[in-house]
């Protein structure tokens, strides 16, 4: 009984999470441009336009590469930092945690302007690398928090056991700690990717001239009206992210069955 209630509750929360997204996805098929509900007519024209719109496709590629890069960098750095924070005792630990989390504490506009001032001091131009490093900084606290929370839950005994059985610290990390950390690593990487993918404020300031990400592209459309091509893009992405792994899983199962 209790479990059913929990399941019901979880389903309700998922529905809440998806309601606005469903709206956006449905509107991708609306024939009218500023339409809302009721939908006036079914049409695939926005998908066609999206496909032809080089600017959006390019922006999507930029966002995607940036997101992946951010996920890799932030997760690697974040894991190392959390390990040090959780596993070793040293004075001023609470302050260092604050320090690591500080990028989320600073309003992005200000962080963005500050970093630009610093670059000017170094006489460096804005570049894609800056954007990548900047996003990593913004995503880092998310990774640190989730990995740290998980590490606290992993008992130190396992690592100590491995060490006492003759494993070196590196082996211990890769064979004991990292596998136990996997859910947090996965979650942290997801966080980092989505944060980078969805970032507007800082991106506007840091991007090199002429390069657009999906959010900045949308931001520019706000003055007039956001084109439903953006809805179509959302639809395509969701279909890909859910569809591809499902299909890959299905295919893998199909082939293993065949081999038997």
């Amino acid at each position: 009984m209790g479990w059913n209630l929990i399941r019901l509750y979880a389903v309700a929360v998922y529905i809440f999470m998806f309601a606005p997204v469903a709206v956006v996805l449905l509107l991708a098929f609306n024939s009218s441009q500023f339409g809302g509900f009721p939908i006036e007519g079914f049409s695939l024209q926005w998908f066609e336009k999206l496909y032809e719109n080089e600017a959006i496709v390019r922006a999507f590629k930029t966002s995607f590469v940036l997101g992946i890069g951010t996920a890799i960098l932030a997760t690697t750095i974040g894991i190392l930092a959390s390990l040090a924070l959780v596993r070793y005792r040293f004075p001023g630990k609470a302050w260092i945690t604050t320090f690591l989390i500080s990028p989320v504490l600073v309003p992005e506009t200000v962080l963005a302007v500050g970093l630009l001032l610093f670059l000017r001091w170094l006489s460096m131009p804005r570049s894609f690398a800056l954007l990548l490093i900047g996003h990593t900084i913004i995503a880092l606290p998310f990774v640190v928090l989730v990995v740290q929370a998980r590490l606290v839950g992993i008992r130190k005994d396992y690592e100590e056991a491995a060490l006492s059985l003759g494993a070196n610290p590196l082996q211990t990390f890769f064979q004991i700690t990292l596998p136990l950390l996997m859910p947090a690593v996965f979650a942290g990487a997801l966080f980092a990717f989505t944060i980078s993918f969805d970032n507007i404020t800082a991106t506007i300031f840091w991007r090199p001239a002429g390069s657009e990400t999906v959010p900045t592209q949308i931001f520019g459309m706000l003055r007039n009206s956001v084109s439903p091509e953006i809805n179509a893009l959302g639809f395509v992405m969701i279909v890909i992210t859910v569809g591809v792994p499902l299909m890959a899983g299905g295919l893998a199962r199909y082939f293993t069955r065949k081999q038997r």
């Binding site: 509107l27 997801l190 706000l222 959302g234 969701i238 859910v242």
Partner: peptide, 20 residues
């Protein structure tokens, strides 16, 4: 994965869509 799918639709668009 389902949890992060809403992020695929840009934050501004998602927020604007509450009116619907």
């Amino acid at each position: 994965l389902l949890l992060i799918l809403p992020f695929w639709v840009s934050f501004i668009i998602r927020t604007l869509s509450w009116i619907h």
